[in-house]
C-alpha cells in the first residue's frame, strides 16, 4: 500500500540558514507517527513546509497521490492535510464557536455543521459552556483543546500536531493527550511533534528522530523507547 504522505529529500531554508535538509519521511493511512528532536532541530519547519506555511527549498511532498508543493497553504487543508501550529494559533479575539467555525471554513456552508459542533462540544464540554466568549479568555490547556477541536472541524485525514503539550501543567497534558487518543481512535492519521518524547512514543506506532535538520533515526516507537541513545538523549 502506498503511503498517505511521502516526503523525499525535503529542504527548508531561512535565508542562508538551513533548517531542514534531505529529509525523508512517510506516513501511512491510519498510522500514528511522531517526530521528536531537541529544540531547533527543525521539527516545526518540517510541519510548516508540509502545511505550506514555508516554502520547501528542495525535495518532494506527495500527499494522497498529488504533489503538495504546487498548492498554496490554503488549498492543502481542503485535501485533509491539517496542521495545529506550535503555540496553538487560536484567534483570541474571535469567540470559541467562531474559532471552531473557522476550522470548517474551507468546507463552505454545509448543513451538518451544527451537528459536528455538537460532536466537538461533546468531546470538549468546557468549550460548550464558554462558546460565546473570546477564545483569548481560555487557559492554555483549553486553548490547545480548542485548536484541536478546530482542526477536527476541518475533517482532517492527516492531522499534524506541533507540540500540543507545550507550556501545559502535567494534569492538562494528560487531558490533552486523552483527547488526542480519542481522535486517533476515530481513524484519523496522526503526525505528532512533541518535546515530551516519552508521551509521544507511548502513543505512536513509529518514530523519527531529528537532529540539526536531519533524520538520524527511524524505527518503531516501541524499539525507540528501548533504544539506549534515544533514552539518553530524550527520555532522561
Amino acid at each position: 500500500m502506498t503511503a498517505l504522505l511521502q516526503v523525499e529529500g525535503l529542504g527548508v531554508h531561512y535565508g542562508g540558514i538551513e533548517a531542514v535538509a534531505r529529509l525523508d519521511l512517510e506516513v501511512r493511512q491510519g498510522e500514528r507517527v511522531t517526530l521528536i528532536g531537541a529544540n531547533g532541530a527543525g521539527k516545526s519547519s518540517t510541519l510548516k513546509a508540509l502545511a505550506g506555511l514555508v516554502a520547501a527549498s528542495a525535495g518532494s511532498i506527495r500527499y494522497d497521490g498529488t504533489d503538495m508543493r504546487a498548492l498554496p497553504a490554503w488549498q492543502r487543508v481542503g485535501r485533509g492535510l491539517c496542521l495545529v501550529p506550535e503555540g496553538r494559533g487560536v484567534f483570541s479575539r474571535l469567540t470559541i464557536e467562531e474559532n471552531l467555525l473557522m476550522g470548517a471554513y474551507h468546507r463552505g456552508s454545509v448543513p451538518q455543521l451544527s451537528r459536528e459542533l455538537d460532536h466537538i462540544y461533546g468531546l470538549l464540554p468546557r468549550l460548550h459552556e464558554r462558546r460565546h466568549q473570546a477564545a483569548g479568555t481560555l487557559s492554555g490547556g483549553e486553548q490547545q483543546m480548542l485548536a484541536i477541536g478546530r482542526a477536527l472541524m476541518a475533517r482532517p485525514r492527516l492531522l499534524m500536531l506541533d507540540e500540543p503539550s507545550m507550556g501545559l501543567a502535567p494534569l492538562m497534558v494528560e487531558k490533552v493527550f486523552e483527547v488526542i487518543r480519542n481522535i486517533v481512535a476515530e481513524g484519523v492519521t496522526l503526525l505528532l511533534v512533541e518535546q515530551n518524547a516519552r508521551l509521544a512514543l507511548e502513543m505512536c506506532d513509529r518514530a523519527y528522530v531529528m537532529e540539526s535538520g536531519r533524520i538520524v533515526l527511524s524505527d518503531s516507537a516501541a524499539r525507540c523507547l528501548d533504544n539506549p541513545l534515544v533514552r539518553a538523549a530524550y527520555l532522561g
Partner: peptide, 23 residues
C-alpha cells in the same frame, strides 16, 4: 463566514491560511 475570515486574517494570516482562507 466571510466576515469571520476577515477577522481571522486580521489577527493571524498564517493560521487563517491553515483554515483554508485565501488571505
Amino acid at each position: 463566514a466571510l466576515g469571520r475570515a476577515m477577522r481571522a486574517t486580521a489577527q493571524n494570516p498564517a493560521v487563517a491560511q491553515l483554515m483554508g482562507v485565501n488571505t
